[in-house]
Design a protein around this nucleic acid. Structure first.
Lengths: 365, 365
DNA sequence: GCATTTTTGAGGTACGTTCCTCATTTAGCG
DNA sequence: CGCTAAATGAGGAACGTACCTCAAAAATGC
């Protein structure tokens, strides 16, 4: 049998109350006694039973997740992953509420954030671009004792407790290395000449900037024969994307690869198909959305750099809870990895994910 | 507030005892009453509080993990990951015991497995090659109600409840695609001629066979210009590896890539360095061991196909617990992905992993 | 309508913690 | 040494569920 607090008390020759004071760092215990209790703990190999502890505390975790109201498939998939993770975590006394804010309105976002503490939240996860007013709002949340976690895109100059997402600079470097190598680079033959097109939604978003920076870094250093063209902005519109890509490809016959830093896989594969270029270019893009999956399977996209959104969602919950409890994180588990997906290692489609809730219910019944 | 069993009883107009009977599928309740209770459950959105339930049951999960006593860095890293995950999971009433068996002795393994149920285990995870006697042993465990999970290498023809690991055939295909593309394949130029060396510990192990099969599949289909040489066996010995590789490379000047399906990264990079070939060949291998990390960083290895052992370890615990409780799995979470690691997306070294335990203790104190 | 079986209710104890209160002991200090 | 403040002990209630017993009520068969 595992030792309990009572065993510790007996072993240390103190009362249960004292053990409790030591365990929960309550004041009014002598150094010497604390040591005695800790010795007993290590001697018996006591491990606090968190289930019992949480029960006694009747601790529950109501968490807010704040996302932009963009309709992009990425944000949508993320929202689904989060709500799935939330409904599974319900058995562990967690509750997760999704909030949306108008993507281009920092003031609305700040107002929303400011209103959160009053609604009984124990923590906030947030995906948003960094603005001064957001910084203030986050400071306010932290001051009220709420942990704040940045999602997908970091907010390095704020008080946020943690960032959950990938290093976009490294992701860009990864894309660069793949692009260079796939184009036969590094072998100094004349075949590694050519041009590479880069697409981004908006060059203002920090993640896009970092990806581009990482991409350029590697291309310049390792693949000098390849010329990377200036980024084309799509502003999140498929229409614009098709237009600018078609125009550029028509004028630049030397283009052999495309690096798509943002969304818009469907528009991209479509314009390539229209021009009869499907499968003829090396196409590398980000985020394994359903469209990207199809395009990979069809050979229209060569590789996808992605982050596992299910992992990201579960990590968000774990990190928020740990921060709310002032507990340490399992760094290895919370590290979101930069995944490279080819057609060959495409994980099976998680179609069943959305039914996870109903399955859990069935089992409980 | 979340509804409790008492709320359900009140809502359904029955007693607490009846609700309990329904919830735990105990006999002696009329169909009609069961329906009333379930209606109340759905109406109030009741979710069973697993922490309280486990506490009441004083349920604890003592799990056995059985690994071969190989000294390979892979098995060692896996063992560490498992024991780390185990000590973290201790707070959730889980206890994990590692057992080793003589790698070449199926009878010793079977004897070990047969002795497990008596020792109070609630589940068994197992990494071992499939043999008839093992099949019987697993059947015996299952008959005694113990869930059995295959680790790393599947045991498809046994009664095992679940397999935790990657699809090695797909991993081989992934390696093949990378190898072909990195060697400039698919462009029909004469530069994609060349030979590829394949190394494996033993051609008998099922995972090696599958990797080789997947690799060949892609190479034949997509990169006909590249010739894949017959596998060289290293038998897990660095000595042998160095010898056979040196000999082959000396005799086959056309070799431009090496696919190492098994362990032995150190021996491989060493022989390449000795021959002045470091960084001159495309080298793809499996498992992100510490040596592989260094070699990646140094540019001696081009890419590593790997599975996240921390994830695998945590998944093992979750799956065993779910199986022991007859609960459904979160498929998305338990799916181990085939990861491609280049120098550019190498995750930060998890040096801190081994201190996770002490950190948790500190926090608890 | 009666006896019998089935179903339901009432109540209690337990799980391992947390977090109270109040009394008692001990240490520190002049 | 006595006084005060600090430290400790003793005990109990609570968290939400599981599981037990015994009695009461309802349904069933004849």
């Amino acid at each position: 049998m595992r030792p309990t607090v009572n065993d510790i008390a007996r072993e240390a020759g103190v009362s249960l109350a004292t053990v409790d004071r030591v365990l929960n760092a309550r004041p009014g215990v002598r150094e010497k006694t604390i040591r005695a209790v800790n010795d007993a703990i290590t001697k018996l190999g006591y491990v606090r039973d968190l289930t019992a502890a949480n029960l006694a505390r009747s601790r529950n975790y109501r968490m807010a997740v704040v996302l932009p109201d963009t309709e992009s498939q990425f944000v949508q998939t993320l929202a689904e992953a989060l709500s799935d993770a939330g409904s599974i975590a319900a058995t562990a006394r967690m509750e997760l509420k999704l909030h949306r804010f108008p993507a281009e309105d920092p003031h609305a976002l700040a107002a929303l954030l400011t209103s959160l503490p009053g609604r009984g939240y124990a923590g906030v996860a947030l995906m948003a671009p960094e603005t001064p007013i957001l910084r203030d709002a986050i400071r306010g949340l932290r001051a009220k004792g709420l942990p704040v976690v940045a999602l997908v895109s970091d907010l390095p100059n704020t008080d946020r407790d943690h960032f959950i997402g990938i290093d976009n600079r490294a992701a860009g470097r990864t894309a660069g290395m793949l692009m260079g190598r796939f184009l036969g680079g590094g072998r100094q033959s004349d075949t590694d000449r050519g041009e590479v097109l880069v697409l981004g939604q908006s060059l203002l978003a920090r993640d896009m900037i970092e990806r581009r920076r990482g991409f350029d870094e590697v291309m310049l250093r390792d693949f000098p024969g390849l010329e990377v063209l200036p980024s084309l902005e799509t502003h999140g519109s498929g229409q614009t994307l098709r237009q600018v890509v078609a125009e550029r490809l028509a004028n630049a016959p030397g283009v052999r690869g495309i690096y798509a830093m943002g969304d818009g896989h469907r528009a991209l594969t479509q314009v390539l198909a229209d021009m009869g270029l499907s499968g003829k270019l090396i196409v590398i893009c980000h985020e394994l959305t359903p469209h990207a999956r199809h395009a990979l399977e069809a050979g229209e996209i060569t590789a996808v750099i992605t982050q596992n959104l299910g992992h990201l969602a579960r990590s968000t919950l774990r990190v928020l809870r740990a921060k709310a409890d002032n507990q340490p994180l399992d760094q290895g588990q919370e590290q979101i990895r930069i995944e490279i997906v080819l057609r060959e290692n495409l994980p099976p489609s998680p179609d069943s994910t959305s039914t996870a809730t109903s399955e859990a219910n069935k089992a409980a019944a």
